[in-house]
Design a protein around this nucleic acid. Structure first.
Lengths: 336, 336
DNA sequence: CGGCGAAGTTACAGCGCTGTAGAAGAGGTG
DNA sequence: CACCTCTTCTACAGCGCTGTAACTTCGCCG
């Protein structure tokens, strides 16, 4: 049997479709008696408005796409959670799109062959270049997240990774560490994120008067716990010595903890370790991780704000905003 | 300026709208010359079909809702990833709905006031009762995931948690453990999942001839690393002794590792620990975790299969399927 | 007591697309 | 060459809803 439609309710109540529509959406200018009559008909027929019909008529879908590499990476899970909450508080629902960090998938997101499905897109690019992003068709508003460079024409939210890396490196230097390694940038050319963290690391070393020793830069085959553990293990086994490791992210830090533990090296006594992202787990590793925590709520709220403004018709140039961060000092790299 | 519509392309190419539609969807019975002519018009005008219009006309949206408590919990992130991949291989896209484990949110999912938005729902319920689930309006196909009891009328996929808990408990007993504790069921009345794992734990003890000591049942205030660490620490500090801990999930196990480490207890030498879910992290904790791994791909594929069958019109009774699991034996509870 | 504005309600034309039925054209047969 | 069968294409009516404009009441003022 076909579902009851607005029309059926209207007929049943003996009123126009539009009046039923007004009752459903609690529009003003509907008399109390009419509201009751229509509501009765709605209840009797068990009417539920059809989302698609409305969406077609209004042109708004109430849907946002959130495109990120992989929700299994804890940072992105946190992001998905924050965006999802921020979206639903504004009446939007979130379509989860995993790009797997692949160029094709990212391209598919920004120039989807189908239009009109989502009102806006929140994209955390990892492969697309600025130029390519800039050339995307302006059909749907896009907010960019993350550390990559963003075109002037698009909204962008990021954390000042250079500043954060400088801070965390300085923190290690101030607590007396002298040979501070960096672990976890991609072996096959660092991502924009890794690059910024490396720059900040370098700046932190300079500010504290330490020399940069490129031997202390330990790349990994991929962004994963295993790759980080393997890479650090190999470096140690080859005789590389250090008294601190700035890790590209918490996953790498967890890999580092594992590799150090296996070799009987104490953290933080022999080697201090820092992570990045403040994933839930980082408070519970042994030792717990000193890490950089981005203001995730500000990130999600900011993205939603910019996106809703664009959806609302704002046409200005791209806004490039930074959200805050803080160091969470825990056991793996305590204060001096 | 308004977007170009099917109609515009049709006019531009001097053909009917339907022909353009046929070209767009690569329907058969379109001559080659016509296809070229229409394609040219499409390219010239930069036409992109509007998803909503089609959805209204066909009645299918190509959207599925995935409702789960919280993507930040690693198990659910893995699930979201698997479902998302399985869905996109079938041409569906996934709407992420977080219920926060709250009854209201779960109810809102199954009896959403808006119809027609999604073609189907995959729901991992945590609070709703069988009866309540059964009474939901039959507007949209639903597949249930997880260990809760499911109504006969609805499709359901689960892992045999009792069998798995029996296996992992037996594993501990076989490796010589005698005082095996259970950590992590909810203090305020265990969830269906915890209940089954407890039952399996009990059965595993029985099969190996160990007595059940209810003092070894250690509930936690919530399902989290912190709560588990706190609960186990408190139990140890009160003098409770054990030589193994079956944890409700990997998060609890990580909390346990932490609590044991702080007290100088060796894992697995003094106390063996097992987890559940085989989250990515569990291979990299120190020691790495012996854990139960559900066949996540089978779970996602199975859910999609059942859902697409329902969407395709299957009207039979609910199918209740089990997916496999295996023990991943790692350092925290090695083979005897 | 006619006239006027506001409140409440209705009719109708789309939003952009597809399914159906059938027209037009191409090709083959007796 | 009339007739029939395919194939290709078109016209049109929705899918379920909302925005707009117009219409009807009604209370109230001069």
């Amino acid at each position: 049997m076909p579902r009851t439609r607005l029309q059926d309710v209207a007929k049943h109540a003996g009123v126009s479709m539009k009046t039923v529509s007004n009752v459903v959406h609690a529009h003003p200018h509907v008399s109390e008696s009419m509201r009751e009559r229509v509501q009765l008909a709605i209840d009797e027929l068990g009417y539920r408005p059809n989302a698609i019909g409305r969406r077609l008529a209004t042109g708004r879908t109430g849907l946002l796409a959130l495109a990120l590499p992989d929700v299994r990476i804890p940072y992105f899970a946190e992001l998905a959670n924050a965006v999802s909450l921020a979206a639903s508080s504004r009446g939007y629902r979130v379509l989860l799109e995993q790009t797997g960090g692949s160029l094709e998938e990212e391209r598919a997101i920004v120039s989807s062959s189908e239009a009109g499905l989502v009102d806006g897109v929140i994209l955390q690019p990892s492969m697309m270049s600025v130029m390519e992003l800039a050339q995307h068709r302006e059909d749907v508003p896009v907010v960019l997240l993350g550390e990559g460079a963003a075109p002037l024409t698009m909204d962008h939210l990021s954390v000042d990774n250079i500043a954060a890396a400088t801070r965390i490196t300085s923190h290690l230097a101030q607590s007396g560490r002298r040979r501070i390694a960096f672990l976890g940038h991609e072996a096959g050319g660092p991502s924009a994120t890794s690059r910024q963290r490396l720059l900040g690391y370098q700046q932190g070393l300079e500010e504290s008067g330490s020399a940069l020793d490129t031997a202390l830069l330990i790349p990994t085959a991929s962004v994963s716990v295993r790759a980080a553990a393997d890479a650090l293990a190999a470096a140690l086994d080859e005789g590389l010595r250090m008294d601190a490791v700035v890790c590209r992210d918490d996953l790498a830090a967890i890999g580092a903890l594992r590799a150090l533990h296996e070799r009987g090296l104490g953290v933080p006594d022999d080697i201090a370790v820092t992570g990045w992202d403040d994933i839930a787990m980082s408070a519970f590793t042994s030792p717990s991780l000193t890490t950089v925590a981005a203001d995730m709520d500000a990130l999600a709220e900011g993205a939603l704000d910019m996106l809703t403004e664009r959806i609302g018709g704002y046409e200005g140039l791209g806004r490039h905003r930074r959200v805050g961060f803080e160091l969470r000092i825990r056991e793996s790299a305590p204060r001096a």
